[in-house]
Design a protein around this nucleic acid. Structure first.
Length: 465
RNA sequence: GGCGGCUUAGCCAAGUGGUAAGGCAGAGGUCUGCAAAACCUCUAUUCUCCGGUUCGAAUCCGGAAGCCGCCUCCA
């Protein structure tokens, strides 16, 4: 079956067809590296990770580009506050960003271009737009003339003439021909301090939108398959990207625009004033495993607003433990007669999983299929209708799912000598029917995060998530 | 003011015309020295509310209420 994706451009679900056979080129809006990213940011990156993993699952080769915005108002303000160079300031948050996505098991994109290393490419586009008469200069800054791009608004379905002149417009004191014209290049002023580039279009720094146009087309070509981002970037950011890129190249820019909805925390929008604003690091500090955050972020359909709660995080943790136990228990199945029902169940869950994800990445439905499968197989194990060969097939099916889900891999360290000694001591006590002692040792181990299971094959242990 | 989305059990969340997936939590049972894991049974006659269309609506239409967004640099 074919993958279908909801395209913001057309507001319909469309069958996905890459431009190049079997090769998908996608651009995903990345972080502005001025602070630690919050869980809302990671919802976007987790969604994009699921997308790229599922594309690969379907056999596509993926080239993903994710930008690092390391020059904008906030990074300038930040480095000035600390009185350190811009690159030194942003380096800290670039490093943190990669640590965070690693802990969430977000696969690395192929390319992470940094805005500050692509000023030349941006200048080239701006110069081209100016030569075409689509951009104009005003007091050293350069603006894109929206009236010269009749299709402006086609992504967000906004009618520019209806836009309310908001408070934020007033803060942009430059004299533009039209309020909705946006900056391609910002002339240097004193508040920028040492942050500027001397270029053929003047002394200053790029506007925000231009970096994405410059870096996406550099690495993916003028026309590529997918562009993702948070729903808030739809307007104006992506709308402006389309305008400036298509005006410059004369070609269609992107075929499929995908936008993830925001998350709210405990039923309210995430805001520092509500005390419900969390970075990933803060969540981890509270003792939750990153993989539970991953599960929670991806388990709701990406175009649905997600309610992030600590109860939900506990539930996510428990759900992952069920999956871990499932795979662990399969490993203990030995001998037995081949059961053809297992193949039927595998075929069914593969079909259901893929149908769900093909349908605009319906992860909730896909997980539902996986858990149905878990219950059905557990029943066969319980009734002793599973063979070792069957169990191995189930394990590899789960591994296949996990190339998309990425929640199965355990981070169990080996037991240290002290804990092994405790387990031995407990088993000795059990043998002697000294259950008071054995239960005491078990509680002690539990306090260390080690859970014991006494099975017919002996005592098994696992680490709590 | 313009535009968009959402409201399904205690919590999270699928389902978009044919009689309510799944996860978590909870109750009872089997297994176990006791647990754990697993299995079995139970847990929404009903989908925010009010109308309408239809043989049939959580699903379509109209209205109301509540919540969340975007409207110039916020994922």
């Amino acid at each position: 079956m074919a993958l279908r994706l909801f395209n913001t451009l057309t507001r319909t679900e469309e069958e996905f067809r890459p431009i190049e056979d079997n090769h998908v080129r996608m651009y995903t809006c990345g972080p502005t590296v001025y602070d630690f990213a919050h869980i809302g940011n990671f919802r976007a990156y987790t969604f994009e990770d699921v997308l790229r993993r599922y594309l690969k699952y379907k056999g596509y080769r993926v080239t993903q580009v994710m930008n690092l915005t390391d020059i904008d108002d906030k990074t300038i303000r930040g480095c000035q506050a600390e009185k350190i160079p811009l690159d030194q300031y942003t380096a800290r948050y670039k490093k943190a960003f990669f640590e965070d996505i690693d802990s969430l098991r977000i696969e690395r994109a192929e390319i992470y271009p940094e805005a500050t290393k692509h000023i030349g490419e941006m200048v080239a586009i701006i110069a081209k737009l100016r030569a075409k008469g689509i951009a104009y200069e005003m007091n050293g800054s350069i603006y894109f003339k929206i009236s010269s791009f009749p299709e402006y608004g086609k992504l967000s379905h906004m009618d520019i003439s209806q836009l309310k002149a908001g408070a934020r417009v007033a803060s942009d004191e430059y004299e533009k021909e039209q309020v909705s014209d946006f900056a391609l290049w910002k002339a240097w002023d004193e508040s920028d301090g040492p942050v500027f580039w001397e270029t053929e279009i003047g002394k200053g720094r790029p506007g925000w939108h231009i970096e994405c146009s410059a870096m996406s087309t550099k690495y993916l070509g003028n026309h590529f398959d997918i562009h993702c981002g948070g729903i808030d970037n739809m307007f104006p950011h992506h709308e402006n990207e389309i305008a400036q890129t298509e005006a410059a190249t004369g070609e269609k820019f992107v075929n499929y625009w995908l936008h993830n909805d925001h998350l709210v925390v405990e039923g309210r929008k995430m805001a520092k004033s509500f005390g419900n604003f969390f970075t990933l690091r803060q969540i981890l500090k509270r003792g939750y495993p990153a993989v539970a955050v991953r599960y929670l972020l991806m388990s709701t359909h990406y175009r649905q607003q997600l309610n992030f709660t600590f109860d939900g995080l506990e539930a996510a943790k428990a759900a992952i433990e069920r999956l871990h136990d499932f795979v662990g228990n399969l490993g203990a199945v030995s001998g037995g007669k081949l059961n053809p029902v297992v193949d039927e169940l595998i075929n069914r869950v593969l079909a259901d999983f893929e149908t769900a994800l093909d349908s605009d990445l319906n992860m909730s439905a896909a997980l539902g299929a996986v858990f149905d499968f878990v219950r059905d197989i557990n029943r066969l194990i319980h009734d002793k209708h599973m063979s070792e060969v069957d169990a191995k097939k189930v394990i590899s099916t789960m591994a296949r799912f996990d190339t998309v889900l990425a929640v199965l891999q355990r981070e169990d360290a080996a037991l240290d000598a002290e804990i092994e000694e405790m387990i031995d001591r407990r088993n000795q006590a059990r043998k002697n029917k000294n259950f008071a002692e054995s239960d005491r040792v078990r509680d002690e181990l539990l306090a260390k995060g080690i859970v014991l299971e006494d099975t017919p094959l002996g005592t098994k242990w696992k680490r709590k998530l």
